[in-house]
């Protein structure tokens, strides 16, 4: 990690670690919206790591923002921080200024006709809290008013809002952009892969600590070879999720996601496919190592695993990204797959 990455990692981890203990996570998912934490996120400019300097950001690279996004996964931040970070990058890329408040990213369930923008059960993270929506359509970035639409509230398994929004949205602003219609989907997939890496690393740490502390048959669980092998297996899977997600960030920094022939789409697809696939075994093993205690609400492993189960399919899961890569493979032919991987 470079200096900036270290600094971001430390400051963001400290904030989330302090603010998001078991009590807080429980309160936020059962009782209240974490208003004060959101204020701190804004105050510290965490949402603006990828924003342009003119928008008050530090114009960091995705590789630099990686530790921040990963912390959002590791600490199961119950706020649209990764969405906000991503939105700022899209704005920077398109020379746009964003309004204050929480952005809602539209990746599906909308249509445009003669400058009339309508949403049809569009799934929007924290939709009911959003101050505005962002959408990309035919080389334009749209900023839309988030008011007067019909909101069906719904939470994902992690108890994070994934509201369904329907109705017309007034266009507040529009900017020409070189990003494609599916850019938001790709970027969403990337941030979820990074978050899965963070959450799975936290689950691994819990599993190692638990296995070392818990004794059965007169010794700690970690002394049993079967458990050691579970932990080693788990560690490998976590490392694989992290590795491809970092690689996707590096590629994105190098070649973007649209113009360059060798843009980051391939790595992003691979990252989300890998992360989504790995979630099944990562969650299975971390629960197995914990025994019954891990199955309780009291213990808190579930904050991680429930989110991983949800994130698995958000912005496309194994079926979607696997098919994208599978189609690419068969259309390019066997001889071309290695050149694609090594390009």
């Amino acid at each position: 990690m470079n200096e900036l990455q270290n600094m971001l990692h430390e400051s963001v981890s400290r904030l989330f670690e302090d603010e998001l203990d078991w009590d807080a996570l429980t309160r936020y998912e059962k009782v209240e919206w974490p208003e004060s934490l959101w204020d701190k996120v804004i105050e510290q400019g965490i949402d603006k790591v990828l924003a342009s300097e003119s928008s008050g950001g530090i114009e960091a690279s995705w590789s630099d923002a990686y530790p921040v996004l990963r912390a959002c996964g590791r600490y199961t931040v119950p706020l649209p921080v990764s969405e906000a970070i991503l939105g700022q990058w899209v704005a920077r890329q398109s020379g746009a200024e964003l309004p204050e408040g929480i952005p809602g990213l539209l990746t599906q369930g909308f249509s445009i006709q003669e400058s009339k923008f309508s949403l049809n059960k569009s799934i929007v993270p924290w939709g009911s809290r959003c101050s505005y929506y962002m959408a990309i359509h035919d080389s334009e970035l749209f900023i839309l008013e988030a008011q007067k639409q019909e909101v069906e509230t719904q939470n994902n398994l992690g108890r994070d809002p994934r509201d369904r929004i329907s109705g017309e949205a007034r266009i507040l602003d529009r900017f020409p952009t070189n990003l494609d219609n599916d850019s938001l989907l790709y970027l969403g997939a990337l941030v979820r892969s990074i978050q899965i890496g963070g959450a799975s690393a936290a689950a691994l740490d819990l599993a190692v600590t638990y296995a070392s502390d818990r004794e059965q048959f007169g010794r700690s669980l970690a002394k049993f070879q079967a458990i050691q092998h579970h932990l080693a297996d788990l560690a490998g899977l976590v490392a694989s999720v992290d590795a491809i997600a970092i690689a996707a960030c590096a590629r994105l920094d190098l070649s973007g996601i649209t113009d360059d022939q060798r843009n980051a789409r391939f790595e992003i697809a691979a990252a989300k496919c890998r992360a989504s696939e790995a979630v099944e075994k990562i969650t299975r093993l971390s629960h197995q190592i914990h025994g019954a205690i891990g199955f309780t609400y009291e213990y808190g492993l579930h904050f991680l695993t429930r989110r991983m189960w949800a994130w698995r399919t958000e912005y496309g899961g194994v079926a979607y990204w696997g098919q994208e890569l599978g189609k690419l493979a068969v259309e390019s032919g066997g001889n071309e797959i290695w050149p694609i991987i090594t390009a």
């Binding site: 490392a239 694989s240 590795a243 491809i244 690689a247 391939f266 790595e267 697809a269 691979a270 990252a271 496919c273 890998r274 696939e277 194994v318 079926a319 990204w321 696997g322 098919q323 994208e324 890569l325 599978g326 189609k327 690419l328 493979a329 068969v330 797959i337 991987i341 090594t342």
Partner: peptide, 18 residues
């Protein structure tokens, strides 16, 4: 079947990175 092929491609890409 395509998705299975795709997951292998994702695996191979990940392993190469590592």
């Amino acid at each position: 079947i395509l998705a299975k092929i795709g997951t292998q491609v994702a695996w191979a890409t990940t392993l190469r990175t590592m």
